[in-house]
Computed example of a mutant assay.
Amino acid sequence: MIAVMSTEISFAEKPTLTGERVVLRPVRVVDALAAAAADPEADRLTGTHETFSLEALERWYGSRAEHADRLDLAIAERTTGECVGEVALSDLDVQNRSCSFRISLFDRRSFGQGLGTEASRLILAHAFEAVGVHRIELEVFAFNPRARHVYEKLGFVHEGTRRDALCWDGEWIDGHTMAILADEWATHRGHPHPAG
């Protein structure tokens, strides 16, 4: 078991994290263009009903550096520098050392290439090892079994189901809550299964 740390945690630092295939870097206003051009399938998989104007996205991306309670990083392909998605740690609960996790790949051409898995491992390592977070949770919708498989491969554990949590095109979809704890991460560092 990892001991509770007495220092306050924060996402005020906006790091650049480099992997073999992706670089996670602080989001920039220019990333709004990639987000605005996102495949509608990306919105469906994350349960995003709203559509945002380019101007609204530019304001949002331009304000991310101001927030110590969340960390928004662009996922850029290492070889091209192209922004292909984003990862976020949000809803930081300082007292309970917990936060939420979200990832979105903007174009289905990026699906199934391992970019999301690598990006997830990078940001989870940062949260647990550099920031000192104890618990990270997420919600994945029932119509996204591919994402749930990736989360399980990273070590997230299913904790419960929010029945009919999302209404998409007139159909009710369950949301599955999953979480990973610091002591679990310390044991497997995002590789809980030998082949993972």
Rank of each mutant, 00 (worst) to 15 (best):
V4A: 06
D169Y: 03
E13G: 01
D31I: 08
E20T: 13
R189S: 05
G132T: 07
S120Y: 01
F111N: 09
S100L: 10
V150L: 10
F106W: 13
R64F: 01
I103E: 01
E152T: 06
F52Q: 06
T187M: 12
L92T: 02
D174Y: 04
F156D: 03
L73T: 02
D91R: 12
F156Y: 12
R70P: 00
D183Q: 14
G116N: 13
A186C: 03
I173C: 05
F128I: 02
D107Q: 14
E55M: 05
E66K: 14
A3H: 01
N144Q: 11
A74N: 05
A125C: 06
A165S: 14
L124H: 00
F106I: 00
F143Y: 11
R28T: 12
E86P: 00
T80P: 02
H191R: 10
S98H: 13
K153L: 12
A195K: 02
E152V: 04
D174A: 04
P194S: 04
T80Y: 00
D164T: 09
A56L: 05
L181N: 00
E58A: 06
G47E: 00
R59L: 11
F52D: 00
G112A: 10
S6M: 14
A186Q: 14
D43R: 15
D107N: 12
I123V: 08
A119M: 11
R97P: 10
L154K: 00
F101V: 08
I2T: 13
E55F: 03
A195V: 05
H176W: 12
Y151W: 10
A142K: 10
H158L: 13
E13C: 00
I103S: 06
T48D: 09
E171C: 07
S98G: 15
I136W: 02
M178V: 07
A119V: 08
H176Q: 12
I103Y: 01
T46R: 14
R146S: 13
L17R: 03
L122K: 03
V150K: 03
L124F: 04
A130D: 11
G116T: 10
A68V: 04
A165D: 12
P26I: 04
P15C: 04
V157A: 11
A165Q: 13
T177A: 13
I2Y: 06
H158F: 09
L54E: 09
V157F: 10
F143C: 08
A142M: 08
P192S: 02
A179P: 07
R21T: 08
E66F: 10
A165F: 09
C83Q: 09
A179Y: 09
S6T: 15
H67R: 13
N96G: 05
R44W: 08
S120G: 00
D72E: 12
E58W: 00
K153P: 05
S10E: 04
E82D: 04
F111W: 15
E8R: 15
G85Y: 08
I123C: 01
H126N: 06
L33A: 13
P15S: 04
P194K: 01
S98M: 11
S98V: 04
I2W: 03
V29L: 13
L57T: 00
G47Y: 05
F11L: 03
A76M: 08
G170D: 07
L45Y: 06
A3P: 01
